[in-house]
């Protein structure tokens, strides 16, 4: 049961550390440094869970979220929210994000949320297949 995860954040240090931490747990993840890059990756292949920073230069997290919900409705999105971007986190929830996590992210908590988001995606995919 491999979860295909995409981490989207413009902070290189954070992305690299996270990639390493997921790697240690034998959960390789893909990374993108901008919303644009994330959407290109999503167009090329399927991801189960996208961990998305709400604050990024250029195309911001909310805009990216909106696009993901439209083009990949099955993919679950977890928002990365800072203390300065709680408002964006709220909007993200209303735009259909699965959940959010407050930065600095507690890794176990994040892992837990990624797992439940993945579970939902699987359930959703199954019920859609049955439904037609």
């Amino acid at each position: 049961m491999d979860i295909k995860i995409l981490l989207v954040d413009d902070e290189s240090d954070f992305v690299e550390t996270m990639a390493k931490r997921f790697g240690i747990r034998k959960m390789p993840i893909d990374t993108a440094r901008s919303g644009q890059e994330a959407l290109e990756l999503l167009a090329a292949q399927d991801y189960d869970v996208v961990i998305l920073d709400v604050r990024m230069p250029g195309m911001d997290g909310l805009e990216t979220l909106r696009e993901i919900r439209e083009k990949n409705p099955l993919t679950e999105v977890i928002m990365l929210t800072g203390h300065a971007s709680l408002e964006a986190g709220m909007q993200g929830m209303n735009l259909g994000a699965y959940d959010y996590i407050l930065k600095p992210a507690d890794f176990d908590e994040l892992l837990d949320k990624v797992r439940t988001a993945f579970e939902r995606k699987e359930l959703n995919a199954k019920s859609r297949k049955q439904g037609g």
Partner: peptide, 24 residues
């Protein structure tokens, strides 16, 4: 929306959402 049922911890869910509102 066809609801997707998962077992959830309501207390945690409420606390999580409250944390988003706390600052405002």
């Amino acid at each position: 929306r066809e609801p997707v049922l998962q077992e959830i911890d309501v207390a945690r869910l409420i606390d999580d959402m409250a944390r988003l509102v706390d600052k405002e």
